[in-house]
């Protein structure tokens, strides 16, 4: 009869063992320069080299430059997208007129992947910095916008009726009923937008960056610093994971009633 902590421990050990096996397989394949025909490990650096490169990067001043410029771009593009996405979403979700006027151009732009914007963005914006911020903005905008519209449209009409019969003015209803009512959906949009924002940034940096994690990864490839490619990949993953965790945390803080409902379920 296993206790719950014991089961937890067993699961943890199994997970760690699985990762260890993967790392060992990678190490073996790389050191043996295994060539499987379809895929070859000839040029893949082993984990030990990657670790070495990661430590070297951690000690150099370049790490801060790369990470901070990527973070700055994502925060700029993502924040603008959040403001525009939520504001437009509230307007479109609340007013049929606003929807009829604002939605058609957005519907036309929506199916175009943000990455497809890169060449045009480079032409449109004089500074490559602005063009990259624009790409992250486009990447995050649509998930945030669509989830906000969805959230606003699905606010229970009885709640709005109740607020009216309690003396709620339109602006009070927007602030105290529509916005919190749509909040769980908006938070979902923000989380999806964060993911697409990072994805678009890294791609944009590979093409037109001077600093940044995406640029670092691509540069490592062009100057044949293969271990650094994998260090870059891991950094991208960590940054994306970190910002998603931050967002989930903020989202839970902003919608305590919602998370309560989820934990009870």
């Amino acid at each position: 009869m296993a206790s719950s902590t014991e089961t937890g421990f067993v699961r943890w050990v199994l997970g760690a063992a699985s990762i260890a096996v993967c790392l060992l397989a990678w190490q073996t394949a790389s050191t043996l320069r295994l060539n499987l025909g379809l895929v070859t490990f000839t040029n893949v650096p082993p984990p030990t080299d990657v670790l070495e490169a990661a430590l070297a990067l951690a000690q150099s001043s370049k790490l801060f430059d790369h990470v901070s410029s990527s973070l700055a771009r994502v925060s700029a593009g993502y924040s603008i997208a959040a403001v525009f996405g939520i504001a437009l979403g509230l307007a479109i979700g609340r007013s049929r007129r606003a929807g009829d006027f604002l939605l058609p151009p957005l519907e036309i732009l929506r199916p175009i992947p943000a990455v497809a914007w890169i060449p045009l963005a480079v032409l449109m914006f004089p500074s490559s910095e602005a063009s990259m911020i624009y790409i992250t903005f486009i990447g995050a905008l649509f998930p945030i916008l669509l989830n906000t519209i969805h959230g606003v449209e699905n606010v229970d009409p009885r709640l709005i009726a109740s607020a009216k019969s309690l003396g709620g003015t339109p602006s009070a209803i927007l602030r105290e009923v529509i916005l919190p009512g749509a909040a769980p959906s908006i938070v979902t949009g923000l989380a999806i937008g964060m993911g697409t924002s990072w994805f678009c940034l890294v791609t944009a940096e590979m093409i037109s960056g001077q600093f940044g994690i995406g640029y670092y990864t691509w540069e490592s490839y062009t100057i044949q610093n293969y271990p650094d490619i994998i260090v870059g990949m891991i950094l991208i993953g960590l940054l994306g994971m970190g910002s998603s965790a931050l967002l989930r945390w903020v989202g839970a803080l902003l919608t305590p009633w919602h998370t309560l409902g989820e934990t009870r379920r």
Binding site: R158, S165, W257
Partner: peptide
């Protein structure tokens, strides 16, 4: 139009889920 002079109670409760019980009652 709707106003605070007519209080309304619906069949299924229409309390604001994001407000505590006392905040709901204090809204009006």
């Amino acid at each position: 139009g709707p106003s605070a002079r007519c209080g309304v109670v619906f069949q299924r409760h229409s309390l604001f889920p994001w407000m505590t019980v006392v905040e709901n009652v204090a809204f009006g």
